[in-house]
Design a protein around this nucleic acid. Structure first.
Lengths: 195, 195
DNA sequence: AAGAAAAACTAACAAACGTTAGTTAGTATT
DNA sequence: AATACTAACTAACGTTTGTTAGTTTTTCTT
């Protein structure tokens, strides 16, 4: 049979450790030598598994980005027509992705601007597309009478930024479950804080 | 009379240009030579006005941080007892500071982690204190019956992150006034988006 | 067991980094 | 006019950077 979990998979190890390091020190502040130390090999040895430092950043950003794209499409079809539930699902999967891929999400959010020019353009396109889809959902929700007539751009970015902060704020050890966190965020964004 | 606007004030020029550069490329991604080029002098010449690259970051972060502290204290006393209005004022001054000191705010938000260890500790303390004050306001607002019984930490970070995003999203040329933006954000955070 | 392929190593490169030293030109003070 | 100060300059320093070359060790295949 084909090896299912036998491979050590050094490349994934490097990418994962790189995400951790970039999260702590930023892309520019992280050196290949320090990364190599964490991985447990010499800097030069890593080049047997990756092409360049830029390629590492590239892989992390786009792999994480695609996770978001897939989940958004899934929520779109699964809760078609039911906008409040769809929105809750969107909030929930954002939280879930952050819980599972915390380091990569951090890199996606903070270090995307250091992508090589050509790929940077593509990344921005992907991101804009995501925002457009999400804005579309809000617009439809308003049209369907499910949402208030809020400013769509402001609602979009309030939503995205509230979710982004989870990555910056959430500390794994604190015993906060992702379900309760998603629920609390939903409560505030859906109903506000005013009594 | 003492010179009120006669001084060229190279130090401020350097700090301002540094904020712009750090915003674009990050602290680690910005070199003293590139900064010097933007300022219009040689890299070495800047050391007549600043002590080190770290000192630049330090000055930007703490100066911007103090603006927030002052304004929060002001809102606290000005709207004592009226929690909805106080919250709206807080949202408004966050937006106002971002409109006026966009670059510095970006550095404050993104590059604070590169402060020298000793100052980093102090910065974190300042930040934690700010969050504590804001959390206190929310808590009091709930006790006074002005706010719903939301999760305080989640409300706090939803608020802060929604405001933080303004810096990332807002493009100066787009003709969005800071008053209308503050109003739209307030509407969503206070009342939610659900119809 | 032999040979091939993969993955580690050491050593070194050229470039860029923050910063210092030493000097010079312009400006203000005496 | 002499002096002191400010702010610019050029040149260079010692590190660190990402990366390559060449070699040796480990692992897989036959």
């Amino acid at each position: 049979m084909p090896s299912t979990k036998t491979k050590p998979d050094r490349r994934s190890l490097i990418l994962g450790e790189a995400a951790r390091l970039f999260r702590e020190k930023g892309f520019g502040g992280s050196s290949m030598r320090e990364l190599a130390e964490r991985v447990g090999m010499e800097a030069a040895s890593m080049y047997n598994h990756i092409r360049s430092k830029d390629e590492i950043l590239d892989a992390i950003c786009f792999e994480a980005g695609e996770k978001y794209n897939r989940q958004l499409e899934e929520a779109r079809v699964q809760f078609a027509g039911d906008y409040p539930r769809m929105m809750e699902a969107i909030i929930a999967f954002h939280v879930a992705i952050i819980f599972e891929y915390r380091d990569a999400v951090s890199v996606l959010n903070n270090d995307w601007k250091y992508l090589k020019p050509e790929r940077l353009t593509e990344f921005k396109k992907m991101r804009k597309e995501y925002e457009k889809n999400l804005a579309g959902i809000i617009t439809e929700g308003i049209a369907a009478g499910a949402f208030k007539e809020v400013n769509i751009s402001v609602a979009l970015f309030t939503l995205l930024s509230s979710l982004r902060w989870v990555e910056l704020w959430y500390k794994p050890g604190r015993g906060v479950s992702k379900d309760s966190l998603a629920k609390d965020i939903s409560a505030i964004l859906m109903n506000g804080i005013k009594a």
